[in-house]
Amino acid sequence: MRVLIAGLANYGHIYPLMPVAVACRDAGHDVIFAIGEELLPLVRSAGFTGHRVAASLEWGWTEAIRRRPELSSAGELAIAPVAAEILAERVMRDLLPVLARERPDVVLHEPYCPGAALAARLAGVPVVSHIQGRSLPARMHDAISGHLDRLWREHGGTADLPDWRAQTFLDFWPPSLQPDPPVVELVDRHPVRPVAWSGRTDRMPGWVPGDRDKPLVYLVFSTVFDLDDAVLDAVLRGVAALDADVLAVVGSRHDRVAPRLPGNVRVERFVAQAQVLPHADLVVCHGGSGVFLGALSAGLPQLVIPSGADQFSNADDLVRVGAGMRMMPGEVTSSGVTEAVAALTGSPAYRQAARAIAREIAAMPAPADLVPVLGELAGAVAVESL
């Protein structure tokens, strides 16, 4: 079986796909990636073939504002549908010739990349979507359905555009975090365990696994929906005031913030999150699906400060199940962060709730268990074509 995996070139969109990619390769199947050039080195360093297709979500937003300058004052959720239109069109244009050359048996894509599903259907290839958030993809599809229908017909689609809800889905949200009622009814949904993944060049700081007499707080925020400098500074001051060791991952702002922090806060640009989480006691983050589910898989309570996309609903769910706290960016003060983290580390109830979710996650099917689902789809289409 040949599997083509398509996604936008953002870490939070590609890392969740990697465990399934590795499981397919370990089972002896061919795996090809089609993503933006920004992350081609990542997939190639992991031993996969990569084709340049589309770009990053950041590019989509920048291009949307270039075409419609009035969007510059809109929030992320207002820009998202326009960016999705632009990205879907570029994905289709770039991916169709790749599909013609590589002739995959199945296409697996992340749901913020609907252009991949359109291109695959036009090429007669079965499609699987890997769910990475609860509600935003449904809102996005509803907002751009007319644009997707136009793309479908411009590229040769004759019958009505297939309903995206009817395709096969892999869903790594544990049972307790599933919305009731569902945000959208899915006909063919398969649970899959979220598994943390790190690239070959990702590193864990050498001091992290050492013995310590203080809790380790892991602080990380989104590379896409980032906190502004003032809010990040308040968060850093808040965790610095704790009697704790702090690993703060701040990306490109490393050189600005690192010299201003006390010795109990060690600052890194990027780390191997999958290796760090087993050593942490608490996570302060934005609530993106990767770190959100990674922390829960490790049974860690969280303080979530959401700033975009599905991070708000993730934070709400965290509070609902009792595994952490939520603080909106406009509510952040350094003293508030200090108090919240102290409460999370001081009360065993939060850790107990997080560990209950960790047990649910551990009981979910492993990525290797979902490889036959892809094989059945590929086989069914092969039989139909005879």
Rank of each mutant, 00 (worst) to 15 (best):
H279I: 02
H279C: 02
H279E: 03
H279V: 06
A280K: 05
A280I: 12
D281P: 01
D281H: 15
L282M: 02
V283Q: 00
C285K: 06
C285N: 14
H286M: 04
G287V: 07
G287T: 10
G288K: 03
G290I: 09
V291W: 03
V291L: 06
F292K: 01
F292Q: 01
L293W: 14
L293A: 05
L293D: 05
G294V: 10
G294K: 07
A295W: 10
L296W: 10
L296I: 13
L296F: 07
L296G: 00
S297W: 07
S297E: 11
S297G: 13
S297H: 09
S297I: 12
A298V: 11
A298H: 09
A298C: 14
G299M: 10
G299Q: 01
G299R: 07
G299V: 05
L300S: 09
L300T: 14
P301A: 13
P301M: 10
P301V: 14
Q302L: 12
Q302N: 05
Q302E: 15
L303C: 04
L303E: 02
V304W: 13
V304N: 04
I305N: 03
I305Y: 02
P306D: 04
S307D: 02
S307G: 11
G308N: 05
A309K: 01
A309C: 02
A309N: 09
D310W: 11
D310V: 02
Q311K: 04
F312G: 05
F312V: 12
S313D: 15
N314K: 08
N314A: 10
N314C: 04
N314H: 15
N314Y: 15
A315H: 02
D316Y: 04
D317W: 14
D317Q: 12
L318T: 08
V319A: 15
V319S: 05
R320T: 14
R320Y: 11
V321P: 03
V321K: 02
G322F: 04
G322P: 00
G322A: 04
G322Q: 06
A323Y: 08
A323S: 08
G324L: 13
G324M: 08
M325R: 15
M325W: 06
R326P: 00
R326M: 03
R326Q: 09
R326G: 05
M327F: 05
M327P: 04
M327C: 12
M327K: 07
P329A: 11
P329L: 12
G330N: 10
G330K: 07
E331K: 12
V332D: 03
V332L: 11
S335E: 15
S335T: 14
S335F: 00
S335V: 11
S335C: 07
S335N: 11
G336S: 13
G336A: 13
V337K: 05
T338Q: 14
T338H: 13
T338F: 02
T338W: 00
E339A: 15
E339Q: 13
A340C: 12
A340W: 00
V341Y: 01
V341T: 09
A343E: 06
A343M: 11
L344E: 01
T345E: 00
G346Y: 11
G346I: 10
S347C: 10
S347P: 00
P348F: 13
P348C: 06
A349P: 00
A349W: 05
Y350S: 01
R351F: 01
R351Y: 01
R351A: 13
R351G: 15
Q352L: 12
